[in-house]
Nucleic acid binder design. Sequence first.
DNA 1: CAGATATTTTGACAGATGACAAACTTTGTT
DNA 2: AACAAAGTTTGTCATCTGTCAAAATATCTG
Lengths: 232, 232
Amino acid sequence: MPEAHYPNLKFVPREGGYARGQEGFELILKAALSVLVDQGYRALTLRGIAKDCGLKAGNISYYFKSKDDLVRALLEAVAGSYEASIEEAVKRGGDDPERKLTNLIAFILDDITTRQTTHIFPELWALSNHDPIVKERLEELYGREHVHFDRLVRDVNPDLPADERGVVTAFIIAALEGTTVFAGYGKSWRASMPQMQTIAAQCFVAYVKAMKPGDSKALATGAVAAQAPSPG
Amino acid sequence: MPEAHYPNLKFVPREGGYARGQEGFELILKAALSVLVDQGYRALTLRGIAKDCGLKAGNISYYFKSKDDLVRALLEAVAGSYEASIEEAVKRGGDDPERKLTNLIAFILDDITTRQTTHIFPELWALSNHDPIVKERLEELYGREHVHFDRLVRDVNPDLPADERGVVTAFIIAALEGTTVFAGYGKSWRASMPQMQTIAAQCFVAYVKAMKPGDSKALATGAVAAQAPSPG
DNA sequence: CAGATATTTTGACAGATGACAAACTTTGTT
DNA sequence: AACAAAGTTTGTCATCTGTCAAAATATCTG
């Protein structure tokens, strides 16, 4: 549960410039992340960021030609780091498909309990509704997560058609993200996150395994019949 | 799918004052909601709200002694409306417990596809991380939702101990809320929301039915065993 | 170490923001 | 119609915001 001074950013090396340049670049983004996590978007101002990293406000305009630019660079660094850790979690994997899926679910939910993730993602979700660039980058992030999950779901139930599998996978990811608001850092069900890991794993693995082609075909709106997946 | 000019607020009648007073009060909150939904929190300024409802900025300070006050009043009205519609959806219910649960799930996911819900809730989630009053009111809203769901879950599986039931219920609600970011208004999986309704209903109803006491007891972190609930 | 380039500070700007007070208008009641 | 209470506008305030340009400093290369 890393908390200290937000190493959870992935930086792309800049072209040209002195070493100090990259340093300042990273310093600013770390400070921006820190402010966003600690005080929210309302408090994310150039002067606030500057104070946090010991630079002057004007200097930030040297690195980022606008505040929106800075926010997008921050998102890029956050998303990159997130993608990298998922990638790693997938590799650590496990022995069999079900175990792999279970472990990935556990990893995601674990990460959600960190202060950073609990605080950052709702900000990004909110921003994405009004900033197309943020929206696109978030979609890319979740798209990559979807690829990984989809592979595992396929391994657990190879008989599922790709389109149906895609939707179930998206639902599973969405469901996991939803725990942010309920069992994330400082939330009322935080203490129950371990049980939720168990529940999520059991629930989704069992459902994917039992699912038969056609199960997820939608029925008439508002009158979905309650039934376990197929006869199985 | 109501979209026009946001009737989705529940107002508490004010004590004393002229009729015009209540009118202005509601006008302002409707405008605030409209701005928040259309342009996000960044654009939620007194002058922006004023422009939207044809009043002058100074007037808003007459109704709300601070901007935070206004935001909290808005949250109160939004939460009240949301609570009322859930209440109603629960009453419309259905015949048997499983059907009731399925219908409530369908209602929630349906609501999530509206522009208002998709846009408002991420803003509230973000705010709640840094405003204790917002956090508390949101918790109350979800607490009431939890009560309703918990009752249905109990009816579907009466053998489940209350504490375990509470956690599963919280997980289900969290999972549903999570679809906001993936299949809400304008999101990439929006078109698959009908299938997700089916999936969510099947998945959660089946899981709750099959669950035996002890199933959700957490195992060692990161090494949760993948298994369907109990033998069943 | 000289000099070119990169970084940093300083200071300033126009515009926006939340808040407020005083003057003005409307509303409802007697 | 008179009048007090409620609502509204107007104008103003101090503060904050993002951005920029010019001066000052630091860094690296040859």
